[in-house]
């Protein structure tokens, strides 16, 4: 196990779920209720020192019990190491703690995740859609059950390959 992952496991034995290291990327999966605490530890602990947020992302696994995966990627400018923090969120209770109070750059990134995947962030200062219009009511486009051609009025177009020959 990578030393960064082991450090998280030792400090948060109940929050730690698993860790992987692949192609040089360290990824740590944690439980949802400890995300904020662990993120704060990652930012403030002198040996971790992750002061830079790279991206917030999400993955949809429709067949899993806890359907969504939220992914944060952090970098330390002083220590020059990276870590990926992941947690799982069920569809019925699609909420996870916002990290905007720790990294202000997370504000727009979390809004994008909300916009595209429908995951809500608790304590986010301004959780609105960001790329899609505010009145977009066709769901969340990056979910796997959202068709590529779109929903709503876009779905009424006739496409060439659907014409009877």
């Amino acid at each position: 196990m990578h030393p960064l992952a082991r450090r998280i496991q030792e400090t948060f034995p109940t929050g730690f779920v698993s860790s992987t290291e692949w192609r040089g990327d360290v990824a740590v999966t944690v439980t949802r209720d400890k995300v904020h605490e662990i993120a704060q530890f990652l930012r403030d602990d002198p040996s971790m020192d992750f002061d830079y947020i790279v991206h917030v992302s999400s993955v949809d696994w429709p067949d899993d019990e806890e359907r969504f995966e939220v992914v944060w990627e952090f970098y330390s400018i002083r220590k020059r190491h990276r870590i990926r923090l992941k947690t799982r969120v069920p569809e019925s209770d699609c909420v996870v703690d916002s990290l905007t109070d720790l990294w202000r750059g997370a504000n727009f990134m979390e809004r994008e995740v909300y916009d595209m995947m429908g995951i809500r962030f608790r304590n986010h200062p301004d959780l609105r859609r960001i790329l899609l219009p505010d009145d977009f009511n066709e769901g969340y486009p990056l979910r796997k059950d959202f068709p590529l051609r779109g929903k709503g009025w876009r779905d009424t177009f006739e496409f060439l390959d659907e014409q009877p020959r």
Binding site: V54, H55, S57, V59, D60, E73, G105, F108, M109, L142
Partner: peptide
């Protein structure tokens, strides 16, 4: 899943 970390988007934040 492919996520693009676009600098312009982050800068607008």
């Amino acid at each position: 899943r492919l996520k693009i970390r676009a600098p312009s988007f982050v800068h607008m934040g």
